[in-house]
Amino acid sequence: MMLNLAQNLIDALSLGSIYALTALGIGMIFSVMRLVNFAQGNYIAFCAFALLVPAGEGISRPFIGLLPGWALVPVVIALGMLLAMASEILLFRHLRGAQPATMMIASFGLGSALQNLLLMLFGSRPIAINLWPALTQPVMIGSLMVPRLQLVILAVTALALVALTLFLRRTRFGTAMRASSENFLMARMLGVPADRVILVAFGISGALAATASLLTLPQTGIADIRMGDGILLVAFVATVVGGLGSLTGAVLSAYLIGLVSVFLQIALPLAARPYRDAFVYAAVIAVLMLKPDGLFSADRRSQRI
């Protein structure tokens, strides 16, 4: 029983990690420009397909995906950053000062365009990618058998969080970014270069999407144009439940949702198990009723999307 509990905990943490990376990507952009970026999920799918050569339906083969890990990881992360930064330069920069709702719908348009672009290039059929099969081998910790991948997911997420925290706390740019997320207008008046701060935020969110993509692929072994959609929805909810503007809150709530999902999957009787997501979202409403500004909110300004 204890063994099971430990295993379930690791399951929940590794699921929560993928959500957390995505929530962080959404939260990052929201905090500096009040944009809820629905394209974040499509960034994840894009990064997965970046490993392949587009050759149409069913015959696309790995290309970048054949590179050794030390080369593959930076290339995919760079591609993710480029894509996110390009979307800022080509689209969102032209919507400065627009309603947050307008920006959100624009991001939905961007995401839809990206998804259909992948459809045009690769066809609708999911494509098998055998990325780093060695990672799926289990290791024994005491009498607990854990897939190596789950440990890697935990470690990489922890590393990303630490790196991001150091960046935000120790670098000039990080300080500018934190200032912007506290009070963007004030920061701007005090000479923080707004466009550059936003561009960097997009770069980071792109890198986070690439990381989430590279951690999901070895688990599922399949690239699908809709692979980011489910993750996005949860991450989006986590960002709000955590308190918009609070990056720590976004990460913690993402883990919380992962934990609740896994717990419900275990605790619910079989007949009620298909309703799992309904329970998760009912809990979300309950939390919002109790703490409308989010569980870990940094400030109490009222905001609108």
Binding site: L233, F236, V237, V240, V241, L244, P274, Y275, R276, D277, A278, Y281, A282, V284, I285, L288, M289, P292, D293, G294, S302, Q303, R304, I305
Partner: peptide, 27 residues
């Protein structure tokens, strides 16, 4: 319940409502 909230919290609560309705009807 939901209309006691305002702003983005209300938006997310409506999203949660959509997911609940969908899950319940689909199952």
């Amino acid at each position: 319940f939901i209309m006691r909230l305002s702003g983005v919290a209300a938006s997310i609560a409506t999203l949660a409502l959509l997911a609940i309705v969908n899950t319940v009807y689909a199952n």
